[in-house]
Design a binder for these strands. Structure first.
Lengths: 101, 101
DNA sequence: AGCAGATATGCAAATATTCGTATATGCCAG
DNA sequence: CTGGCATATACGAATATTTGCATATCTGCT
């Protein structure tokens, strides 16, 4: 399972993909909406959406002209929240470390 | 924060590193012990331990001859557990998807 | 000091990811 | 069925990561 899990985390290892997941955690969004919120070229966004889709973390449905994306599992939001906690902890631990020296 | 978070996940995106974190989640371990449990060359292990150290996810203390590693934050174990849940969900979702086609 | 075991670092080749740009496809209006 | 907007894919150059191997460093012992 480490192999699978590392694939999963590798998928999360990209700023734009994280950003998108956070936004989708709030609510479903069309590509156009996402495009307005993250500051990148359209192909760049579609590429990363494709990565997330292949990893099975998001799904897209066509809706009229465009496409709407949503998270497959809401626990992804939870995961990102937990990771924020850990990051804070790790960051302050590192700061204390430096403080002691 | 997406940048920081993606760095964090990138660090997790490696089978050996995941394996090590899971083992350290159970209990602290010396490099020698880790070496016996994961099946890799010693330099490979030390390299990945170094990555984890630089990322601030683990710390090492010298103990006699060798070095003992431990997790900086036990919530890392929790995180890995949550990710397991999500993986299962995602995997079955994907399977159902295929089943429907 | 000199040795031996344990751990860490350096570095180049192989491999994988990202980014930009061009282009293709899907869908609706007219 | 054609134009135009929305989204997706292709592909090469730039960049980052991984891997294997050689070697350095640290520690306790004699």
């Amino acid at each position: 399972m480490p192999r699978l899990k590392s694939e999963f985390f590798k998928t999360l290892g990209h700023p734009l993909r994280i950003r998108v997941l956070e936004l989708l955690g709030e609510s479903d969004r069309s590509v156009t909406e996402l495009l307005a919120e993250v500051g990148v070229e359209q192909p760049a966004l579609s590429q990363q959406l494709a990565v997330l889709r292949r990893a099975g973390l998001v799904v897209s449905r066509r809706e009229g002209a465009g496409a709407v994306y949503s998270l497959v599992d809401e626990r992804l939001a939870e995961l990102l929240a937990v990771s924020r906690q850990i990051l804070l902890e790790v960051a302050t631990a590192a700061r204390d470390e430096l403080g002691v020296l």
